[in-house]
Amino acid sequence: MSSSLQSVSPPLCHLLKWVLKVTLQMKLETVDFKDKLEETKGQINNSIKDLTDGHFENILADNSVNDQTKILVVNAAYFVGKWMKKFSESETKECPFRVNKTDTKPVQMMNMEATFCMGNIDSINCKIIELPFQNKHLSMFILLPKDVEDESTGLEKIEKQLNSESLSQWTNPSTMANAKVKLSIPKFKVEKMIDPKACLENLGLKHIFSEDTSDFSGMSETKGVALSNVVHKVCLEITEDGGDSIEVPGARILQHKDELNADHPFIYIIRHNKTRNIIFFGKFCSP
């Protein structure tokens, strides 16, 4: 869910409103930061709360906006995946999670035995598995080192080689095959407020934050309008919930059984399968 909010002083282009609403399905509102700052903050927070079914409250911190704010972009992403085949809640057990070679922490571990698409990446001594969600449009890929080999999380070797090309190669269907898998993965929730301003500037978008260099002429007739702030909050929740499918369909079924026990740090990727776009990307290092 994305929302763009602009101060009441620069008038908005009517064509822009239509494009955002109809084409991009974004919500654009004109608000008054200058004279009604607290009221506007409350309006934005309530709007985000409603749109995320109450999961995100008070998304705007005190320093997110002020009476000089011109354009504010707010993005909130809350994802609760439903698996193609649900995990049995009765099989979820507390187990030790190895955060490094010597230390462990308790975690709720979900367990299942079913058919999944799985592969081995010998160059980084790692297993990869695809866990499809219920609508089949999205999948979670887990990259799990076979053991904690370095002095930190055990992910150093994977992280050094991980890029768009290597990920495309590792997730290529020709390098994976369907097999009966005894699967154990943690039940977890990750929530984070991200400041993407530095990332956008590193990508070359420095000019949009400066009134001297920004050009929003297609958005407003007022000169000297710049993007004041970008607020981005994400939450990913992985639970047992899912459908009743017994098997994950595939052309090649290996008869032997394999095992993936994610009881130590791993990288997770949620991908839109048709476009191969990455929706979420992260690493689980500690409960």
Results as ranks from 00 to 15, higher is better:
Met118Ser: 05
Gln68Met: 15
Asn100Arg: 08
Lys105Tyr: 06
Asp103Pro: 08
Glu130Ala: 14
Asn111Asp: 02
Lys136Asn: 15
Ile158Cys: 00
Glu151Gln: 15
Gly154Val: 05
Ser152Leu: 10
Asn100Trp: 07
Gln68Gly: 08
Asp103Leu: 14
Gly81Met: 07
Lys85Arg: 11
Glu159Gly: 00
Glu113Phe: 02
Val74Asp: 13
Lys70Gly: 13
Asn75Val: 09
Glu91Ile: 10
Asn66Pro: 03
Phe141Asn: 00
Asp67Phe: 15
Asn111Val: 11
Leu138Glu: 00
Thr153Pro: 04
Glu156Asp: 08
Pro106Trp: 12
Leu144Asn: 11
Arg98Asp: 14
Leu72Tyr: 03
Gln134Arg: 14
Asp103Phe: 04
Asn135Asp: 14
Ile142Leu: 13
Val148Ile: 07
Gly81Arg: 01
Lys85Tyr: 02
Ser152Cys: 12
Met109Asp: 06
Asn66Thr: 02
Glu89Ser: 04
Cys95Trp: 06
Ala77Thr: 12
Glu113Arg: 05
Met140Phe: 12
Val148Pro: 05
Asp147Leu: 00
Val99Trp: 04
Val73Gln: 08
Val73Met: 11
Lys146Ile: 09
Asn125Trp: 00
Thr69Cys: 13
Gly119Glu: 06
Leu131Gln: 01
Asn135Ala: 12
Trp83Pro: 00
Lys127His: 09
Ser88Tyr: 12
Leu72Gln: 01
Cys117Thr: 13
Val99Met: 13
Lys127Arg: 07
Ile142Thr: 12
Lys146Ala: 08
Lys127Ser: 03
Glu151Val: 11
Thr69Trp: 01
Gln108Arg: 11
Ile142Pro: 01
Phe116Ile: 06
Glu156Gln: 07
Ile129Cys: 06
Val65Glu: 00
Val99Gly: 07
Trp83Asp: 06
Ala77Leu: 12
Asn63Met: 10
Lys105Leu: 05
Ile124Gln: 05
Leu143Val: 04
His137Ser: 04
Ser90Leu: 14
Thr153Arg: 07
Gln134Pro: 04
Thr153Gln: 07
Ala76Glu: 02
Ala77Asp: 10
Lys82Gly: 09
Glu91Pro: 05
Asn66His: 04
Met84Ile: 15
Phe133Cys: 10
Asp122Ala: 14
Lys93Thr: 11
Leu144Arg: 02
Gln68Ile: 06
Met110Trp: 05
Asn100Thr: 06
Thr69Ala: 12
Asp122Pro: 10
Ile129Val: 15
Ala77Tyr: 11
Thr69Val: 14
Asn75Cys: 02
Met110Ala: 07
Asn120Ile: 05
Met109Tyr: 02
Gly119Phe: 06
Ser88Val: 15
Ser139Gln: 15
Asp122Ile: 13
Ile158Arg: 00
Trp83Ser: 06
Leu72Lys: 02
Ser152Gly: 12
Val80Ile: 11
Asp122Glu: 15
Glu113Lys: 09
Met140Tyr: 03
Thr115Ala: 14
Met84Gly: 05
Ala114Asn: 09
Val73Gly: 07
Ser139Val: 12
Leu143Ala: 01
Asp147His: 01
Leu143Tyr: 00
Asp122Ser: 12
Asp62His: 05
Cys117Arg: 12
Val74Trp: 09
Leu138Val: 14
Val73Lys: 03
Lys85Thr: 02
Thr104Met: 10
Lys85Pro: 01
Met84Gln: 08
Lys85Ala: 03
Ala76Ile: 00
Pro96Val: 07
Asp147Tyr: 09
Val80Thr: 04
Ile129Pro: 03
Thr102Arg: 14
Glu130Pro: 15
Ile121Lys: 01
Lys82Cys: 06
Val99Ala: 07
Met110Phe: 06
Ala114Ile: 03
Ser88Gln: 15
Met118Gly: 01
Ser64Gly: 12
Ala76Val: 03
Cys117Pro: 02
